[in-house]
Write a protein that binds this DNA or RNA. Structure first.
Lengths: 220, 220
DNA sequence: CGGTCATGTGACTAGATGGTCACATTATAT
DNA sequence: ATATAATGTGACCATCTAGTCACATGACCG
């Protein structure tokens, strides 16, 4: 957590620092980020920086919190279109809505995701708390889905969580790699081409790659 | 490519340097790796290092080449048990045999994978050549599988490649995260528990998470 | 032996890093 | 206006970084 002095700052100055930090982490990750550069870019003095934060990890923690808050605010007034959706439909809605949210704060998402999805794997324990959030909610979702008879009960929950976590991360990575190339990320996300890609991907997650009889009926 | 002086070195000394580099990259990745530490650990002088290599990227390139050679040598005398295997069976064999290979050079695999799978995403163009190798062979495999009527033809090739690439990477990451915790990695890979996990994972890739009628016949 | 060429060496440079601290400035309260 | 507390500042420190270079050591050859 940043120190009180940081929160006493005028919002404008706070934003200046956050912007600088977001850029730095998005560009260099956490371990390679330079506090000196953050200080230079946010046009504060070195002494001030250390009066606001412990170190760069402290800044990063704050960015994660910030992203969490923004996400919560974004989802606050959003509800799936159909109340009787099954789990896969709900997951599809979550993924698509999540991608729209990502387009609304792409740099912040890039900064945080880059560290949590990649560096985080190697500096394990430090980031476990963040991963656990997603894991737990996915686990609840899947347990319910099995009870409802939507997910194959012969697949254990742990594995199903891994599958969905993998796809959640893969789609995030896809967003960061392909979406961030575009001028208008939001337009790219909402384009029929991107939406279709996500649909197809989740279809494969549901029904698999293999050509089966039951699928023939669907595609014929 | 390392300079000629490096290849003139006695094999023992070369190995010493490789070991030090592998450890450094496995522990710190590419961007955070320190040539100074590699030099210290391999017990050569600074001047010598720069007579062998251009810089640390040069060393890393060599490690990638080395891993490629070792992998090729490992697969040279291995053939899938059944010649009439379908594509999914073949892929399953590749993945499992690949994991056995990984256990035989776990540190080298860790060093290279860490950089290519994670850092590589952000320092794009530099590593594209390596990624293209896997992509191309997966693409050939899938095209053939569609022709054989094994893969759903309504799934475009590009997407199927993404799916298989995602799973190849996910299994690599799983190996690095879980397998490397074990004392005996090889034993862990070949244990029934791990093998079953892989089987189930690839089963889900083939048939999906959703409970379908055709699956009922299989699982009942 | 002397000469030549390849290899080994570590002190040194120039720059960046995270972090501290004595002091200057500003705001608040009396 | 004066005292007190909060905030701002950048020179400075120790440590690390990649890379160079003048010189030392060794090997081989005539």
């Amino acid at each position: 957590m940043p120190k009180q002095t940081f929160f006493n700052l005028p919002a404008e100055k706070r934003q200046q620092i956050v912007d600088a930090a977001v850029d730095e982490f998005a560009e260099h990750g956490l371990e390679n980020a330079s506090t000196n550069r953050i200080i230079a870019a946010s046009e504060i003095s070195k002494g001030s920086f250390y009066q606001y934060f412990e170190d760069k990890h402290d800044v990063f923690d704050y960015l994660v919190t910030l992203l969490g808050e923004e996400k919560q605010a974004y989802f606050a007034d959003k509800r799936p279109p159909d109340d009787n959706m099954d789990t896969f439909g709900y997951y599809r809605w979550i993924i698509k809505t999540g991608m729209k949210f990502n387009s609304s704060s792409p740099r912040l998402v890039q900064a945080v995701s880059r560290v949590l999805l990649n560096e985080g794997v190697y500096y394990g324990k430090k980031f476990e708390k963040y991963r656990r959030q997603t894991t737990d909610s996915l686990q609840a979702m899947i347990t319910q889905a099995i009870q409802r008879g939507e997910v194959d009960p012969s697949i254990d929950v742990e594995l199903a969580v891994m599958v969905m976590e993998t796809w959640t991360n893969a789609i995030s990575t896809y967003f960061l790699r392909e979406g961030m190339k575009e001028d208008d990320v939001m337009a790219w996300v909402q384009s029929p081409k991107t939406q279709e890609k996500i649909d197809k991907l989740l279809y494969v997650m549901e029904y698999g790659l293999r050509k089966t009889e039951s699928k023939f009926g669907k595609n014929a």
